[in-house]
Design a protein around this nucleic acid. Structure first.
Length: 418
DNA sequence: TCTGGGGTCCTAGGACCC
DNA sequence: TCTGGGGTCCTAGGACCC
């Protein structure tokens, strides 16, 4: 039996812990750069505001509906997530953190009937210990547990146990709500007369595999209660890629600023790479240009370069030396850049990296330099020490005009109680 | 004027091997 | 007119997830 524990409106709930005046109000948490809505309170959902709404479209409604907006505060959300996951880890060693706000648990099933009470208790404890409301769904496969959580979210008790014969329940679930069925697939399935999860569960999985993909066939089996997706050991899994990409707070037209931005993202990504003891065998650097006259996403233009490294590395100096010249080559005078990023791939364990026959001499001092820099920056804050290539004024930095304090991770941000 | 960031996996097609 | 069978690896693109 699987349980899926999912935090309700997670980013909004995090903001509400330390700002109880936001309870009962429509609240939106915004993406980086305060660009668009990435999390909504129930009150905001009830107003019919869709996920991804750009802020400028929301603005006219703010005062009319008394909507509160917050910039995203990932430092806060990551810490609250860690606390929720720690509570779950006490309940079951078979835990897979699936995203920042949800986790699967595998349960040794003794009494099926006891599950709703167990879910209710878990829910009460997480609420009391962290302030975060969660929903809990149970099912014999991960996909059914997901569906159960979807139903749990609409119930006042926040818990739902998938019945042993789930088809009838699944008939009430639109097919696009099924885990693994996205918007594209949903359209095509509906054209074939498959509009609900129940209809998908009854479909011929062999035919669907041939027509679509094996993933969809697996989903069908999972919906019937046959568990084919394993619980993954997230701790053991080595990440495949690592990226740092950002839209700028203001459009960049100068090469100097573009170089600063790419250097900054490169350094951030390399720091995370070092933190997980990995090196990268290659990377993609890309620039995105704004469309003419402020057109939307359909007019944006990407230019990118894929670089293979002779020797895998996570050293800023080595990376900057090869990436900045590529930025120079990609740069086109007169272009309005809105975003840039780097994506590392071919990641390896730093301790086990493959050496070249004619390897340049190892640079232990460089490794020491970066580990010293990383620990100083951990202690005194990001950019306590930084590479001058990242620039000093950084006029292109992202906008976060509605940022809340990091209540739980910075002493200076501790909440004052009068 | 203003629209995010970070991931995973599968498939088809091409190039290559014997 | 008619030209095999069985593989691997890589890449780009597309789908999905949060």
């Amino acid at each position: 039996m699987y349980a899926l524990v999912d935090c309700n409106n997670f980013f909004v709930s995090c903001e509400r812990i330390f700002a109880p005046q936001l309870e009962g109000r429509p609240v939106a948490v915004l993406s980086n750069n305060d660009g668009c809505v990435v999390a909504r309170s129930n009150e905001l959902k009830a107003l019919g505001i869709p996920m991804g709404t750009p802020l400028f479209q929301l603005r006219p409604l703010l005062s009319r509906y008394h909507i509160a907006i917050c910039s995203s505060n990932y430092e806060l959300y990551a810490d609250i997530s860690r606390r929720v996951m720690a509570i779950l880890a006490e309940e079951s060693p078979c835990l897979e953190q699936y995203s920042i706000d949800e986790a699967f648990m595998r349960l040794n099933l003794e009494r099926r009937e006891g599950l709703p009470a167990f879910g209710g208790e878990l829910r009460r404890r997480i609420r009391q210990w962290t302030g975060i409301p969660v929903s809990v769904g149970f099912g014999p496969s991960k996909t059914l547990a997901k569906a159960a959580t979807h139903i749990a979210k609409k119930r006042s008790d926040g818990v739902f146990l998938m019945p042993e014969k789930p088809l009838e329940t699944l008939d009430g679930l639109p097919v696009e709500e099924v885990w693994g069925v996205g918007s594209r697939l949903a359209v095509r399935l509906r054209q074939r007369g498959i509009a609900t999860a129940g209809q998908l569960a009854r479909a011929d999985e062999v035919k669907l595999a041939a027509k679509y993909s094996v993933c969809l066939a697996r989903t069908v089996l999972e919906l019937r209660g046959q568990s084919v997706l394993e619980l993954e050991d997230v701790e053991q899994r080595q990440p495949q890629t690592l990226a740092c990409t950002r839209a700028f707070g203001a459009v960049i037209v100068e090469l100097r600023e573009l170089r600063e931005a790419v250097a900054t993202y490169l350094d951030q990504a390399a720091e995370r790479l070092r933190a997980q003891n990995q090196v990268a065998g290659g990377l993609i650097v890309f620039l995105q240009a704004a469309g003419a006259n402020g057109g939307g996403p359909e007019t944006w233009n990407n230019a990118s370069r894929t670089l293979l490294l002779e020797t895998p590395t996570a050293s800023n100096a080595e990376l900057l030396k090869i990436v900045l010249p590529e930025v120079d080559r990609l740069f086109v005078e007169g272009t309005r850049y809105r975003k840039a990023g780097v994506v590392f791939f071919a990641l390896e364990d730093a301790a086990q990296k493959q050496l070249m026959l004619f390897e340049p001499p190892v640079r232990p001092r460089q490794r020491e330099l970066y580990s010293a820099m990383d620990s100083i920056n951990r202690q005194y804050g990001r950019r306590a020490l930084f590479n001058l290539a990242e620039g000093i004024s950084q006029n292109w930095r992202m906008r976060r005009e509605h940022l809340t304090p990091c209540y739980t991770t910075r002493w200076k941000d501790l909440l004052m109680v009068n």
